[in-house]
Design a protein around this nucleic acid. Structure first.
Length: 518
RNA sequence: GGUGGGUUCGUCUAAAGGCUAGGACUCAAGAUUUUCAUUCUUGCAAUAGGGGUUCGAUUCCCCUACCCACUACCA
């Protein structure tokens, strides 16, 4: 029996979505699309303590910026779907709104003997942990200790009923079977075995806030939503045996999803997984979009830093996956066609900010002139008003190879829009010398009088002729002209600059420089 | 500490027992040039260590080392 592919991305709204999370979402999305499947977004907000306002909206906006649109869970306006419909049959997709459904599943497990009520308080358990720690041991709530703790396995039946009905601080814990070898399979890592004695009796449901924990909510929702493959981060691998046991206890093995655990994104330097701090420290974004937290701390985003979304997706896709060919530039469409879980790399990937810039440059090169004009206008609103798109486009064409990001355009081209107000002293010292002072007026009048029409080719060719026939130094003359036109020693070819500026402006700028520098 | 996962150039990675371990980023050198870039060419640079299995291990097995994750009434 083959079921239609259904995968989900199930983040917890505890803050902005980190780029590792975006990668997980992306792999899920690629897998779904290439299988003609469905990509579901589910919000796992079962921890009321850690809920962060705005995080859910951030997650959705970040995915949309990346071009990842969930088929289910989110509507066209980017809002979580709250009522079931034909397109979104399992709504709501926010676990806090599904709280009513989990208790009965937890109690079903208690009734079948796979789980039990536990009445130990958090303080009592903390004390036990501390005590064990002092003796250099570890306290684990499991087969070895559960018979000595306060739970429905040890307390009389009427006492248990009384507490369940009247008290509000109990939990339901899963009863991990004793000494079982749990055999699992991971689509990326292969077969894995774990002895159940190393596991602990995880809390499934909390009476205090009437909410399930991740483990229960996750399994129940994946089952209810007919999820076929669970593609998630490696940090979940240690709880995979528990999840297998849960599917077994519910009797859902037939429809149990397959699992794929993705390795983590690591810090570029040093060790450990990539964190928010690394971005601040090393100067690159860790988040897709800018985020300001409750304390007012700002975390930069790839979008605001000037990355193209398709470049960002491309970077992420190749961090831990490769097609086995030498192709590195992939559109979303191409990724959908070539992605396979089999080619996902098992080991963690250190993020390389330098290569990220290179990717963006590649995407910059692929953009059409029209796109660049729009990008440039958007990034430097105001500075470009009064100039037509043809002129801006011509400027873009002349500087595009010199940039990694559109936000470098203004620095690279401001002299096309604003005449230099001053002249870089170092360049003046280098080029504005006596021999050139005698030559420039002749070049000036030649430009104004002889170059007709004032086309790029004519300027280039005739200026060369003039300079070589007089045996002047090409570099000295050209760089002096550049200094007059630009104000410093940078920029595209002098012929390109003169052509775009036009004869009148060139004339004016040379006159002004001559007046200023003497 | 325990459990699980991982380990090829500095970084991302290829080579599913068989060419000289390939590509990309970075870096260096050279060429082109009118500055800075671009472009082109070339170069530097790796199988963690030790045992096996095999005619032959980057690849399979074992041990060691190191790295990572998990070890909550968080996800």
């Amino acid at each position: 029996m083959t079921r239609p592919v259904r995968v989900r991305f199930a983040p917890s709204p505890t803050g902005p979505l980190h780029m590792g999370g975006v990668r997980t979402a992306l792999y899920n999305y690629l897998y779904a699309k290439q299988s003609n499947g469905t990509f579901v977004l589910r919000i796992e907000d079962t921890d009321s303590q850690r809920f962060v306002p705005g995080a859910e909206e951030y997650i959705i906006e970040a995915l949309r910026w990346c071009g990842i649109f969930p088929d289910e869970g989110v509507d066209e306006n980017g809002k979580m779907v709250e009522e079931p419909s034909e397109k979104h049959p399992y709504a709501p997709y926010r676990q806090s709104q599904r709280r009513g459904i989990y208790r009965k599943y937890a109690e079903e497990l208690v009734n079948k003997g796979y789980a039990y009520y536990a009445f130990d308080t958090a303080e009592e358990l903390d004390a036990l942990r501390k005590e064990a720690e002092d003796k250099k041991g570890t306290f684990t709530y499991n087969y070895a200790s559960r018979d000595f703790l306060k739970n429905s396995l040890t307390l009389p039946e009427d006492e248990v009923r009384r507490r369940v009905e009247n008290e509000t601080n109990w939990t339901i814990r899963f009863k991990i079977p004793e000494n079982r070898t749990v055999k699992m399979n991971d689509l990326i890592r292969g077969d894995i075995e774990v002895n159940s004695n190393t596991l602990d009796d995880k809390v499934l449901w909390k009476r205090i806030d009437e909410l399930p924990t991740y483990h229960l909510a996750n399994i129940v929702d994946d089952h209810l939503m007919q999820i076929t493959e669970v593609i998630r981060g490696e940090e979940w691998l240690p709880s995979l045996p528990l999840h297998y046991l849960l599917y077994e206890a519910f009797g859902w093995q037939e429809s149990q999803p397959r699992f794929a655990h993705l390795s983590l994104l690591l810090k570029p330097d040093g060790k450990g997984k990539l964190s928010k701090r690394d971005g601040d420290r090393l100067g690159f974004p860790v988040f897709p979009l800018k985020w300001i937290n409750a304390e007012g701390e700002i975390s930069r985003g790839y979008r605001e830093d000037g990355y193209f979304p398709d470049a960002f997706i491309n970077i992420l896709a190749l961090l831990g996956w490769n097609p086995g060919t030498e192709q590195e530039i992939f559109s979303l469409e191409e990724l959908i066609n070539t992605f396979t879980l089999e080619r996902v790399v098992k080991s963690g990937a250190k993020f390389n900010p330098e290569k990220a810039k290179w990717f963006n440059q590649e995407y910059l090169r692929k953009r059409t002139t029209e796109q660049l004009v729009a990008d440039f206008k958007a990034s430097d609103a105001g500075k470009l008003v009064g100039y037509n798109d043809t002129y801006i486009g011509a400027v873009c064409e002349v500087i595009r190879d010199r940039a990694h990001f559109v936000n470098e355009f203004w620095d690279l081209s401001s002299f096309f829009f604003v005449a230099p107000a001053s002249y870089d002293p170092a360049s003046v010292a280098k080029f504005w010398k006596d021999d050139i002072k005698a030559v420039i007026p002749r070049v000036h009048s030649f430009i104004c009088e002889k170059i007709n029409p004032f086309t790029r080719e004519n300027i280039e060719q005739q200026l060369h002729e003039l300079i070589t026939s007089n045996e002047w130094s090409m570099g000295r003359v050209m760089n002096t002209l550049r200094l007059f036109l630009v104000g410093e020693s940078k920029g595209p070819g002098v012929a390109d600059i003169m052509f775009l500026l036009g004869k009148d402006e060139v004339d004016a700028r040379i006159k002004r420089a001559l007046n200023t520098l003497g």
